[in-house]
Design a protein around this nucleic acid. Structure first.
Length: 478
RNA sequence: CGAGGCGUGGCUCAGCUUGGUAGAGCGCUACAUUAGGGAUGUAGAGGUCGCAAGUUCAAAUCUUGUCGCCUCGACCA
């Protein structure tokens, strides 16, 4: 890669200190502020605009598959949370409890939802009677609370925004089909909207969601070689249905339990966007979720006609992209830096010299390339350039991920890779959790997933040397 | 929960060792000159030094306590 030109000096280089780089980018791009409550973040307008675009496009994709949105309460009585044993054991350590209503101590503690399986289950038990009532394909957009000990903006906060889909089906086959369907929705969304390539696969039993029969995941790789779980889709089988008594009468008039799924994606994806596409000048936004796709920076804007021309371009481009004009009296150089930090995909420079020649400058955020474009061609050039930027980001991210994906056939190799060139490690596994624990103990790497696309790297487990069952992606994770 | 670090104008920090009038840079306000890669000048506004108790003639500075935040680990989306 050519030496990266860097204009923004106030952001720590990612090679020097990655966590500091991340924090600098979040701050400089004005995505969040810390709130006065530990571990909670204020999502600023620019950060929230990204979330809104992400949300809208993901929601559209859900609805295309027949999903309907609902809203559940944020409070769960303790007795309801207790109903599914594995589930409560998994979440109890990080639940926030409400113990008082006003001055009065409550008879029963109320939990602030860490996730809403129990509420959906209770509701399904009430509304599902017959096979004619199925499937139920519900989703909700909400926030959930988990009492985390260590927090970082977007990656881990005590309260975060997400969507949780919950479906109920007549048969196990249908539930499994829906589980995979939604995993694919996530994977396609990451590729086509966020320009993030993902590995699809199943979680091992150790990494499975509390109460699920199968957990599927998409895993992405960050710039520093750490993995990020980017979306999960669970098949619950009929475990929750049995615990909550969700039964329906089938065509033969027999009582059956429903089969359920759940799937979620969170504001953490904003962290993924930062860490997959960002560079040492700041944020780099994939065009499809960029709140501003084109920023118009007038040059020598006090000169006669410049601002008028800039405003005219803005009004024209408004029809083909999300465009903004910065006519503040900051210097042009300041504006360049500002929008680079904010990751705006295209900067349009228009000055007196350009106007004379009926042209403008388009500067790409992803490559830094500047091109002169005739003002007459903007309506076609800009949308095409936005698509090109998307493709380029996806290509670069895929190449980077592939170049940071290694194979290991024994623990020496494994340890050497994880310590010297962190990334995904493909290695065979016997299926025994003891080996997973041992690997984690030795390397701090966890199993990310058993990918759908299996490869035969060797026939024995990387850890114990016994016969291997699966090829697994391993890595240190956020 | 373990290990470190930090609380002083909006932000980043100096001052604390050796107690004695509250500092700098950035940002902000006004005006002027500027503008193709974070402009310059001039004039201004802005702080009970996290909180509490103690020592002292005198505390940002010393002592004790307390609260909060950040980073790194373990746990987790």
């Amino acid at each position: 890669m050519a030496k990266e030109k860097k204009f923004v000096e106030s952001i720590t280089d990612m090679e020097v200190d990655f966590p500091q780089w991340y924090t600098d980018v979040v701050k400089k791009a004005d995505l969040t502020e810390y709130s006065s409550l530990k571990g909670c973040m204020i999502i600023r307008p620019y950060g929230y605009a990204i979330w809104e675009l992400l949300q809208r496009q993901l929601d559209d994709r859900f609805k295309e598959t027949g999903v309907e949105n609902v809203y559940m309460p944020m409070f769960i009585p303790e007795s309801l949370l207790q109903k599914e044993k594995d589930h409560v054991e998994g979440f109890a350590p990080e639940v926030a409890w409400v113990t008082h209503g006003g001055e009065k101590k409550l008879e029963e503690r109320i939990c602030v939802r860490p996730t809403s399986e129990t509420l959906f289950c209770e509701h399904y038990a009430n509304i599902v009677q017959s096979y004619r009532d199925l499937p139920k394909l519900y989703n909700q957009w909400c926030s959930v609370v988990r009492w985390e000990k260590t927090t970082r903006p977007f990656l881990r906060t005590m309260e975060f925004l997400w969507q949780e889909g919950h479906t109920a089906h007549a048969t196990a086959e249908e539930a499994q089909e829906r589980t995979i369907q939604m995993l694919n929705v996530y994977a396609d969304f990451c590729r086509d909207v966020l320009a993030i390539p993902v590995i699809k696969g199943e979680k091992t039993e150790k990494e499975r969601f509390a109460g699920a029969a199968h957990t599927f995941t998409i895993e992405s790789l960050m710039h520093d070689g750490k993995a990020l779980q980017s979306g999960t889709s669970h098949n619950f089988g009929d475990g929750f249905a049995q615990a909550f008594g969700i039964q329906y009468t089938d065509k033969e008039n027999k009582l059956q339990y429903v089969h359920q799924t759940s799937w979620g994606m969170t504001t953490r994806m904003i962290g993924a966007i930062i860490m997959v596409h960002g560079d040492n000048s700041g944020l780099v936004l994939p065009p499809r979720i960029a709140p501003t796709q084109v920023i118009i920076v007038p040059i020598a804007q006090k000169k006669e006609g410049v601002l008028d021309k800039a405003a005219e371009l803005k009004n024209r481009l408004h029809k083909v992209c999300r465009v903004k004009l910065d006519d503040s009296d900051k210097s042009a150089g300041w504006k360049f830096s500002e929008y680079e930090m904010k990751g705006v995909p295209i900067r349009l420079e228009i000055g007196p010299k350009d106007i004379e020649q009926n042209q403008c400058v388009l500067a790409r955020r992803d490559t830094g390339e500047k091109i002169f474009v005739s003002l007459d061609e903007l309506e076609t050039k800009i949308p095409a350039l936005l698509d090109e930027i998307h493709e380029n980001l996806l290509k670069k991210a895929t190449e980077r991920r592939d170049s940071k994906t290694y194979t290991a056939t024994n623990m020496e190799e494994f340890e050497k890779i994880i310590n010297e060139t962190p990334g995904f490690i493909k290695a065979m596994w016997c299926g025994d959790q003891a080996c997973e624990d041992a690997i984690k103990e030795k390397t701090a790497a966890t199993s990310r997933c058993i990918p759908f696309e299996q490869e035969e790297i060797s026939d024995v487990c990387v850890c114990c040397g016994k016969k291997a069952k699966h090829m697994v992606y391993w890595g240190r994770a956020y």
